[in-house]
Nucleic acid binder design. Sequence first.
DNA 1: CATCCACAGGAAAACGCGGTTG
DNA 2: CAACCGCGTTTTCCTGTGGATG
Length: 418
Amino acid sequence: MQEKLSGGKRIESFIDAARISSNSPRLMLHPEYLDDENILEEERAKVLSEIFSRDIRKKELQALANHFAPLLDHKASSHAMIYGPTGSGKTTSIITFLESLERTAQRENTPIEWRLVELTAQSTCFAALNRIAVSLEASRTYFKGIPIELMQTRIRDNLADRRGTLILFLDEIDNIETDRDIFMSYLVKSLPRQVPVKLFYIFTSNRLDWEKTLDARIHSCLRSQTILFTPYNALEITEILKLRVQKALDPSRVDDSAINLISALASKHSGDARKAVELLSKSAMIAERNGSRLTIKEVEVAEKTLEVEKTILLAQNLPLHQKLCLAACYALFLRTKKRVHSGDVYEKYKELAVRMNLGPISQRRLSDIINSLDLYSLIRARIVSHGRYGKTREIENPVGTELAARTLDHLNRLLVYK
DNA sequence: CATCCACAGGAAAACGCGGTTG
DNA sequence: CAACCGCGTTTTCCTGTGGATG
C-alpha cells in the first residue's frame, strides 16, 4: 500500500514536471530547422540561399558559374569534376547553382535541363546505370538480371527525343566500386555520340585521387574542369550555426560560447557542417529536456551521448557476421587490454559462430570484414610485421574500454547463443 | 644475408539470387 | 515451367612481403 502510494506520487510528480517544462519558455521553437532530412524543400532552399548570401562557398559557386556560363550563349563547355570532403556543401551548392542556372536559361529561352543522380550507397556499374535511367524517366527501377546493353539502350532511347543541353549531376561517383572504367567510358565516350542532346556531367567525389584511378584512355577523353571544395573553417561553421539558431531556437537562451564550442569541435575534427548541425540539435534537445539554457555543459554532454548512440546504433545494424567479428574483437580487447592479432580474432570469431550454430566464414572474408569495421572506426587495424613471427594486422580499440564493454553487452543481448 | 613466419590481399572459380524469355 | 542471364557474394587457391632471427 505504502509502495503503491509513493509510486503513484512519483508519477504525479513526473506529470507535474512535464507540465512545468512544457509551459516554461521553450528553447526549441522550430526544431524542424535542425533536421536536414525532414525539412521542407522550399524552406531548405531558403535557408541555403541565406547561407550563400553570407559569402560562404562564394569562391566555389563562382567557379561553377564561370565554368557553365558559356552554355547560356550556346558555347561549348566541358564536364566538371568536383572534390571535397563530406559535409563541405558540395551537393547543396551544386543543386542551388543548377536551379539558378535553369531559371536563367528559361528566361533567355535557352533550354538547359539537369538531373541529379545520387550514388549514395556503394554500388556497381549496373546499379549506377539503373539510377540514371530512373532519374531520366522517373519510372520503375529495373532489377538485375537484364543485360547491361539493354540498360544502355533504355537510357539512349530516353535521351533520343531530347534537344538542347542536359547536365547530369552524378553525386559521389567514387561509390561505384566495380567496372568503373566501363561505366565511365560509356558515359564519356559512347553515350554522347548516340544522342542528339548535348550532355555534360558534374561528378563529385570525396577522394582527391579519384580521377587518377581511372583508365588512362578514359581520363584523357574526360577533359574536365576541376573545382575544389575546402572544408568549412570554424568561422564559417559558426555562421551556419548562428543561422540555424535564429531559425530554430530562441536565441536569447543560447550562449555564444556553446556555439563557439560546437564549431571548434566540428572544424577541428572534420569541417563537416552536417555534423555540427547534428551536434547543435542534440545539445538543444538536452537543454530543452533540462529546461535550461544551451551552454557549454549541454554541448559536452551531447557530444558524449552522440558518440555512444552512434557506436551502438552502428553495431546493431551490422550484418550478422560483422557483428560476430566485432563482438570477438571487443571481447578480446576487454580480456587482453591492448592490441590483438587477426589470427586471434579469427579463432574467437569461430568460437562464437559455432556457439550460434553457424557455419563459420573463411579467413579471407573475415579479413575483409576487419577492413570494413576499421572503415567504420569501430576498430583500428593496421598491418604490422613481427619479422620472424610473421606479418599480421594489429587491431586496436579506438572507442575506449567503457564504450566497448557497453557495445559488447548490447551485442550479446542481440545475438542468440546456443 | 637468406630464411621463413603469419598473415594480406589479388585472381578466379563457384554459388545463389532475382529477374527475363521462350 | 524450365532454361538461362548477369550480378553480387563467398570460397578456394594462390602469390607476395617486412623484418627479426639464426
